[in-house]
């Protein structure tokens, strides 16, 4: 794309074979927890309304 020179700001080289997305995994777990909180807050809203 207009612009795309992927290595232009590379600070660290990454070995593709050993790359493990631990940050993405943590983000995903937090996302699921966030979803659960929102879903259950609605669920308890229903219970509160009887």
């Amino acid at each position: 794309m207009e612009t795309q020179t992927p290595t232009d700001e590379t600070v660290e080289e990454i070995d593709d074979a050993s790359f493990f997305p631990k940050g993405a995994l943590a983000f995903f777990i937090l996302l699921i927890v966030f979803f659960a909180i929102l879903w259950f807050s609605m669920y308890f809203e229903i219970l509160a309304r009887q």
């Binding site: 700001e9 590379t10 600070v11 660290e12 080289e13 990454i14 790359f19 997305p21 940050g23 993405a24």
Partner: peptide
């Protein structure tokens, strides 16, 4: 994350 780590 791959991109962000590559950028430091």
């Amino acid at each position: 994350e791959y991109a962000g780590r590559k950028r430091g």
